[in-house]
Simulated scan of single mutants.
Amino acid sequence: MRAPVLAYVGLGANLGDAQAAVLRACERLAALPGTQLVARSSLWRTAPQDAAGPDFINAVACVCTRLSAPDLLQALQALEHEAGRERPYPNAPRTLDLDLLAYGDARIESPALVVPHPRMQARAFVLAPLAEIAPQRVDAARLAALAQQRIERVPGSMAWSAGQGL
């Protein structure tokens, strides 16, 4: 059996009830085979980048998984599909977006998957929530350099970690 790996998943939505979609996706992550939800950041409201449309609700989740990186990516894409994700054009508004940000310390470059996520260091909507649950993975100077990107914590949302209950 495959050894467990800590993986980080970026979650986002900006169509329908985006907040509910992100929270529901966290529950679905926890239900993946051989996978446990370890932590989830607060919810963050962010402006779309390189796109038009409503604001996004974003979060980052940490999972401990026995799935391989390609299998985890496939499971994430299946969850997007279940949530009604369509891809009519690049950066279109979406009901759910799940990105595999990191898979342990692995470096993967294939046509289907690049890990660590190639654009995560340029996105406040990834680094701010990631810093909440895994500060050792975020360079504070890099996050500070993204201060011009509009991002705000959703009032009442709180980071969660195992042992607190969903």
Rank of each mutant, 00 (worst) to 15 (best):
R2F: 04
P4I: 00
L6W: 10
Y8K: 12
V9K: 10
L11Y: 01
L11K: 02
G12D: 11
A13G: 12
L15R: 14
G16W: 05
D17W: 03
A20F: 01
A20S: 12
L23S: 06
L29F: 09
A30P: 03
A30R: 10
L32T: 11
A39H: 04
R40K: 13
R40N: 09
S42Q: 01
L43N: 08
L43G: 08
W44F: 14
T46H: 01
A47T: 13
P48E: 02
P48M: 02
Q49C: 04
D50Y: 10
G53Y: 05
G53P: 02
I57P: 01
I57Q: 03
T65G: 10
R66W: 03
A69D: 05
L72E: 03
L76W: 05
L76C: 10
A78C: 03
A78D: 13
L79Q: 07
E82Q: 15
A83G: 02
G84N: 07
G84R: 08
R85E: 11
R87H: 09
R87Q: 08
R87W: 09
Y89W: 15
P90L: 01
N91P: 03
P93Q: 03
L96D: 08
L98V: 07
D99Y: 10
L100G: 12
L100V: 11
L101K: 12
Y103G: 13
Y103M: 14
Y103S: 14
R107V: 15
I108L: 15
E109I: 03
E109N: 08
S110D: 00
S110H: 00
P111G: 01
V114K: 12
R119T: 06
R119F: 11
M120S: 05
A122Y: 06
R123C: 06
A124K: 15
V126A: 12
A128K: 07
P129W: 01
A131N: 14
I133Y: 08
I133T: 11
A134D: 03
V138P: 09
R142N: 11
A144G: 10
A145W: 07
A145E: 14
L146I: 04
Q148G: 05
Q149F: 02
Q149T: 05
R153V: 08
R153S: 04
V154S: 00
M158G: 09
W160D: 06
A162F: 12
G163W: 11
Q164A: 09
Q164M: 14
Q164G: 07
